[in-house]
Nucleic acid binder design. Structure first.
Lengths: 332, 332
DNA sequence: TTGTAAGCGTTATCAT
DNA sequence: ATGATAACGCTTACAA
């Protein structure tokens, strides 16, 4: 400790933590002293005394794609960046398929290890949110469903994004438009589906139930679905995908079947992953500000935990990036 | 607390932590009691009392690709998985280009926030390692350079991998083989370069200095380099890349220049990223067990921190996955 | 403005 | 085998 300065530890504590009731002379002395002797307050002790861990947790499924999507990595980077600015740390844990997810969340809540939790890949009627609400535990979601409170979520406007993407297909003359959505238990899948349906209905187009499928957000799932799609008598001329990885799989499947993607079939994705521009054909996709989404998640958390007054920005806009995969399809 | 059982907290502590000097009857009573009343020891208090944080940190550059490479995400997942099994948490922080990296590391070391640090993307003469060594702070590296101790690193055999990859090109008849290496300050770049040079020398092939370039591990860097490469009078017939993203950029650049990748020019990458199989041409690449590397990093850390006796497995093997990008090039 | 002292919820060292 | 009691290194009333 800084006893060498002849000051009590309370004064030191107050000086270092920017309390007002400290003589500025004293404060300088303390700060300089700390500097010189390389004094660093012990993080754990601070946490115990203050009752706050200054850790925020995020629990990721160790198996699936989410951890791997390049877009999501950037979201994480945004979160971590912003938290670090306010001396908070991000704790990343994975939960495997073998573990009881609710239990993992419960353990986090009750251990005092984290002050708040991020929830990603929100699900319809998400049990994780129920749990956190029940325990009055601070959380921020990446994802939205009716009933989420404005201080607790960030999302892109999935419905609008896929409404516009579908509309674009319609404007290009497509009539038979399929949508390979993400797993149906996700809130984003529901929203995107609504956007798709809205555009189709507005244009008074038939919606064949076979054209609306769900699969994991990866290449192989999309390949399988595409094959069933293209085997239909009434096969689609345009296939919308829930992300760029799926679009990649769809492109691949079409080729295997002898259809030229981007020529015989229009394809579009979501996320603007790094590789999408290098795909052949390059992938028409939906772009959004991944880093900003992450930062916003952190801000909302800080609003809750530190009574910060960051302006709430729930919804992030998207933009269609037109590339080859859906640009040159002559619709018969 | 469990006072309701009429036991002192020391007894409760001992019972819960599996100490030998506790009556088994008592232990059962305590464990059941804890179960029933949902008692959870406070993580922060444990940490303060024991002097250990049970957190391991990893500091990632917020800007570059590393955070984004799909391979690396899996490494992270492996780390987190294994740590969680032993009740350790992974703390992920990012350091932006604006911040003083050494300072960020120093703060971590001295704050008591983490008991150990992972170092990734090791650099030649890595200052981070110097710092940690100086402070006798536990660390484990992903990467290797002469002098690293066996208990402190995990790596794939980069030299061998690129030796074999280069050799493969030679066996296919290539004589002018270029190598787009990663930034030259990384240990992996040095090792890979050595592998490349070894194979070239063994085959007594000319090594044009123009054929050996460095760039960031992304598409655009590789594109630029490829263009300079293909403008050479003595242009290469085979281009090896330090990862699959670079290979993607190289493919794209070749096409732009009117060379058919996989036909006019052989191209290969490293990492077996998800998209590589869907590229056109699909990318010949080097695969390794990403999850296992992550788990091994965690094990080495646990060896240091908990005196675990996990068998040390420093080197991870690689395997060439042959695909189209380097398989059908007729060498003149 | 500064100091004193109690407490945060554990672990660890003694006795008993 | 169990219980007091003192740390652990801070924060935070409350006193001075």
């Amino acid at each position: 400790m800084l006893a060498s300065l002849g000051l009590s530890k309370s004064t030191v504590s107050r000086a270092l933590n920017g309390y007002a009731d400290v003589n500025e002379e004293t404060r300088k002395k303390v700060i300089n002293g700390a500097q010189e002797m390389g004094y660093k307050p012990n993080a754990t002790a601070k946490r115990l005394a203050s009752g706050k861990s200054r850790n925020i947790g995020i629990i990721l499924p160790s198996s699936n794609q989410l951890f791997v999507s390049s877009a999501f990595s950037k979201v994480l980077a945004g979160v971590s960046n912003m938290l670090a600015k306010f001396d908070y740390q991000l704790i990343v844990t994975t939960v495997s398929a073998l573990q009881d997810e609710q239990q993992v969340y419960f353990d986090f809540i009750t251990s005092g290890l984290v002050d708040g939790l991020f929830i990603v890949r929100t699900r319809i009627n998400d049990e994780r949110i129920c749990l956190l609400k029940k325990h009055h535990f601070p959380y921020v979601c990446y994802g939205f469903e009716q009933g989420y409170e404005a201080d607790s979520f960030v999302d892109v406007d999935n419905e609008q994004a896929f409404y516009l993407l579908t509309k674009r297909q319609i404007e290009q003359g497509h009539v038979r438009i399929a949508f390979l959505d993400a797993p149906s238990n996700l809130t984003l899948s529901q929203a995107r589906q609504q956007g798709y349906l809205k555009a189709m209905k507005e244009a008074d187009l038939e919606i064949d139930a076979h054209w609306l499928l769900n699969a994991e957000l990866n290449e192989s799932g999309a390949m399988k679905m595409t094959k069933s799609l293209m085997a239909l008598a009434h096969r689609p001329t345009s296939i919308l995908c829930a992300d760029d990885n799926m679009a990649l799989g769809t492109i691949s499947a079409c080729e295997e079947l002898g259809y030229a993607p981007g020529v015989d079939v229009a394809i579009a994705g979501y996320g603007d992953y790094e590789h999408s521009i290098y795909s052949k054909p390059s992938i028409t996709t939906i772009k959004y500000d991944t880093l900003a989404v992450g930062e916003e998640m952190a801000k909302l958390m800080l609003n809750k935990l530190e009574n910060k007054q960051f302006k709430i920005h729930n919804w992030y806009s998207t933009e269609i990036i037109v590339r080859q995969s859906d640009a040159n399809v002559a619709v018969r």
